[in-house]
Design a binder for these strands. Structure first.
Lengths: 212, 212
DNA sequence: CGCAGATGTATCGAACCGATACATCCGCAG
DNA sequence: CTGCGGATGTATCGGTTCGATACATCTGCG
């Protein structure tokens, strides 16, 4: 009812504004830098989202400094409200299937610094089983139709599989790293320190509740 | 006005139906197998697209065999019309910026077997410069904000960069391969032979036609 | 028999993109 | 000083696709 606010943009915006107040243009740049190669939001979604968040009282326009010329209004700087912070915390606590899909995972990961260790682990494992599930289905489909595909299609499959296998290895390292760092100490006061990434080959632990 | 037909689904559907007539359900499976890990269309886009294509006369419902029970109508098998083939050829000839974006490239590549060598090369090179452009912008942005990012964000950036660099290397190999094979001989009559694509070790020659 | 799971067709709202349109600010060449 | 191009900045519109859902049929199996 209140506008476009079910997607990942909400988290992305609230998460960004949590650091410091920003206006739309800057917000977009920050966001797309933050997400690197994973995602790039456009104004076509950003501005409607800002309006909806404003409308719901999760963000407000920041007061301009008093020395501003009266009739002038150019930048519109947004900042989080108390309700916005609450909502952000709520979003960062969740770890449903919507956290480890392709479009969402990068965003969740980008805010791992503000996410509880337990949630981080669930998301990483969820992402991993999602990918392994996909690997399975593609591999079996490939085995059944092997000789019917032309070389280009085959090459596409091969590259795709390799890429995903690579991401799974990456996730394994991250999960190992999380587990090692997790039980070490319990200090919720400081901003959660990421346990630095170490490498190891194939690790296989069971995963929490795959799909649906 | 004719419905959802500007996207990649049109090419995907026409390209798939070019091989053999199919009904929706099977079409989707074929498509998602074809595209491997790159993409997965849903019914929510597939059926509207089929309706639009039908509406435009690019595909038709295939006549059921005469021995079908009268009142029964379950599967709806679609096949390409002459106009559809024409349109497909038109789509396969184009090579605009829309060919090398993330969502489109995989689909274009999947049908390289039916694409002219020159077009293939343009698409591969377009994709490559698109990715390099992105690498540049992320790398410079990273250099400017290096110390402001937490470890998780940094790790995300690192992984993203590595993935894209990997894809660029892949493209380089493909482009080399295309160029080598291109000037070798000139035979437009036969279905375009892919120039020596990387082979994979696993041979699985059995499994005689289990699918229907 | 009955029922679970694959097959099969279909729709709706929500999310997001790409293009586009403007307006303002600022450095700098003429 | 002027004007002009490019970055900054706000905003919308149409169109594509997803995710969830609904429902009907066919098929193997205990």
């Amino acid at each position: 009812m209140t506008g476009p606010r079910g997607g990942m943009l909400e988290l992305a915006v609230l998460g960004s504004l949590h650091e410091t107040p920003l206006h739309g243009y800057e917000l977009r740049k920050r966001l797309n830098t933050l997400l690197g190669m994973f995602r790039a939001f456009s104004y076509g979604s950003l501005y409607p989202c800002l309006r909806a968040l404003l409308n719901d009282g999760l963000i407000t326009e920041e007061e301009p400094p008093a020395d501003t010329v009266i009739g002038r209004r150019s930048k519109i700087v947004y900042k989080l409200t108390a309700e916005g912070k609450e909502r952000l915390h709520e979003l960062l606590t969740q770890s449903g299937p919507s956290s480890w899909e392709d479009e969402s995972f990068g965003i969740r990961f980008a805010f791992f610094g503000h996410t509880e260790a337990e949630v981080r682990l669930r998301i990483l494992e969820g992402r991993r089983s999602r990918l392994e599930e996909r690997l399975d289905s593609v591999r079996t489909a490939l085995a059944r139709t092997r000789e019917r595909l032309d070389s280009y299609t085959l090459e596409l499959q091969r590259h795709g599989l390799e890429s995903v296998e690579r991401e799974v290895r990456w996730l394994n390292e991250l999960i190992d790293s999380e587990r090692r760092g997790a039980t070490a100490r319990e200090d919720p006061s400081t901003t959660t320190e990421p346990p630095h990434v170490v490498q190891d080959g194939t690790k296989r632990a069971d995963t929490p509740e795959a799909d649906k």
